[in-house]
Design a protein around this nucleic acid. Structure first.
Lengths: 79, 79, 79, 79
DNA sequence: GTGGTCTAGACCACT
DNA sequence: GTGGTCTAGACCACT
């Protein structure tokens, strides 16, 4: 799976806004965006936390935060 | 509620990519992004179809498509 | 393909019930009934949206609603 | 659950048409019609074979045929 | 106001 | 031809 686009979406947190967006939020935003775009169909397995962590360079705990948020919002379900 | 940012998010569809992203997808992407960001808490009422339509200049039916998609994905629930 | 029968099935919406059944639901009901009856075998191509619209006099967007519903329920798949 | 309507829908098989519709098909047609109408939401549990058999007076084996057909068509899933 | 339904068009890429 | 997208209206019941 390509993670292209994450940097651009994540740029909200590096711009000089009044409040920095946390990294996990950038990841969550990116994944929800992919879901909307149809990159992942409903029912399909998402890339693993480990995979995203390795590919993006974020710590797995940060990626976990993103998944936890998406699950709380009802966007994804964990197995 | 400010709808600022929709145009920028929608700019994906005007870039010379291989396939233009439909407008309803831009709207859906924007709304899901707002949900992720916490602009709307779970249980909160989203801005109405009419409001988004008027504010953005899109036809209400286009906005409806976005809502329908978000509902199909389980991101939102309609009353 | 004959669309005979749609009017009769649609008559549910013109009777003085408490809430009128929307047209798209009549179309969906008719098509699912045909699928059950075996008029269309699994894998077979259904009549086009345009064809049904012209034959029945409904707007294509109304016919689309019926197809969208049938797809959401998993009764049909779109190409 | 009310089974009202089954008789009317099933009347296709008792009219003097060229080919009688089998009873299981009437049941299947009725259930699919209820699904379309939204009497049962996606994911909801349908009434049991036994319940339908007792309520309608059809043999359970006939009701089973209806369910088997609906499952083959992908309209329902059995647990 | 709000969402659900419906119409009658239009343009477009291409299964 | 076919479905996907989109518009700009309309009418209606009522969360």
């Amino acid at each position: 799976m390509a993670i292209t686009g994450l940097c651009e979406l994540g740029s909200r947190s590096s711009s000089g806004g009044p409040r920095e967006e946390p990294k996990w939020q950038s990841i969550a935003r990116y994944l929800s965006s992919e879901l909307i775009q149809g990159s992942y169909k409903p029912g399909e397995i998402l890339p693993s936390e480990n995979h995203i962590a390795k590919t993006t360079g974020f710590a797995r705990s940060t990626v976990r935060q993103a998944f936890a948020h998406l699950e709380k919002e009802g966007f994804i379900k964990r197995l």
